[in-house]
Design a protein around this nucleic acid. Sequence first.
DNA 1: TCTGAAAATATTGTCGACAATCTTGATCAG
DNA 2: CTGATCAAGATTGTCGACAATATTTTCAGA
Lengths: 240, 240
Amino acid sequence: MSEEIGYPKVVPLEPEARTLADRVCRQIVTAIVKGEIPPGHKISEPELARTYGISRGPLREAIRRLEGWRLVERKAHVGARVVKLSAHELIEIYRVREALEGMACRQAAKNMTDAEIESLKRLLDEHEASIEQREGRSYFQKEGDLDFHYRIVQGSKNSKLLELLGDDLYHLVRMYRYQFSVSSSRPKRALKEHRQIIDAIEARDEELAEMLMRRHISAARRNIEDKLDTVTKPEGDKHG
Amino acid sequence: MSEEIGYPKVVPLEPEARTLADRVCRQIVTAIVKGEIPPGHKISEPELARTYGISRGPLREAIRRLEGWRLVERKAHVGARVVKLSAHELIEIYRVREALEGMACRQAAKNMTDAEIESLKRLLDEHEASIEQREGRSYFQKEGDLDFHYRIVQGSKNSKLLELLGDDLYHLVRMYRYQFSVSSSRPKRALKEHRQIIDAIEARDEELAEMLMRRHISAARRNIEDKLDTVTKPEGDKHG
DNA sequence: TCTGAAAATATTGTCGACAATCTTGATCAG
DNA sequence: CTGATCAAGATTGTCGACAATATTTTCAGA
């Protein structure tokens, strides 16, 4: 049994998987996030049932939950498809992240324990070492970045924030990252911003912590917008 | 193949209800929100199947989707229960609303059409008439308030915001309102704040619009906190 | 009477089969 | 040859039955 442990797992939100539907649900999420089931792809119930060796009943329940998490879209009597990537929606997600994680950072500045802060600072040290070592092109940086953000959300001690970001948004974000291969453009700058954020949290400065996080995510959004503009034609309104 | 149109389509709610599971899902949501199925109540599959006259298959799928929307919690081999009311979580929800609707208001100030703004101003006129007429104790105020907020979110033209607030949070907020009977305490003040918000949107002042909405929801949160402090003392149930 | 374990019961989890609907491909009129 | 109509195939939706697990009841022993 190859139990994969050791790397930062960002999905501790699933207590158990004692039932077939739960287990398969997790497998499908992983497959979608990693792109093994590409965006827009039809989800064939008989095919997936054969693949995972289960009946269609639990499979359909898993799909229904994924529908609730907005990873798949379903049409009656037609079938379910993996959500399609759209540059516009990716930007929308980053606007939501800016709002949600800004609030998370504000509450983290208030509710994070000193031990959590210290641990997070050590994580950033690891990130720095990883960046120096691999010249900033590390695969680890992708998951590492999300790990930092996830810990902030955990530190907010706000369970609703954790549910919304952990279940709904981060899956999509990771999927988009696998798709577009973004976010590893300026790891050093991101690391510096991360340090500023944790400093503000350590100083218990709620206002500053929220502002820095919002700036950080807003910068990431603009970075993506620029990258997308080079590929996508600016047919939209460019008036100002 | 790619018939994707790029303009922001903001109509993800109410797709269809052509299937039993979809129809029953909506019925259960309404029942939960209205309190017909009280919070913490066990959801018995055989009982509900008999009630709605369907098999357990579609019912289970509906429950799985409700689980994705966080209206019910499920434990393996034990069953599903309607989410339990907790004062702490209600406050958490309002913190999330502050962040999310603040961002929605910011984007509404940018993306709302003049027609939408005009329509919303007329809605506030109706609210004012309703308040004057019924001395501020109107039942309509409850849904009317949420209607205002929902239109702002629609005006943001951000489909992700609409999904998160519409599917996940507003159901819970309405449920809590039916439970605690809150939010009708200061309708005149709320109306005044609503007018300030729509004025900021009309002036296309994004910063101000976000700030006013955050203040508005933050005030509502503090109002609830005060009310809960006067009531909160029963630490768990006691039976004879 | 109280405690603990084991049987009885009820509920959830899973499966295969059938019905309703959509999609595809073939046939035929223009 | 093009287009529409209709039949064949495939997929989704629904159902009832059986298996696995949790909860409740019962009963024996201290």
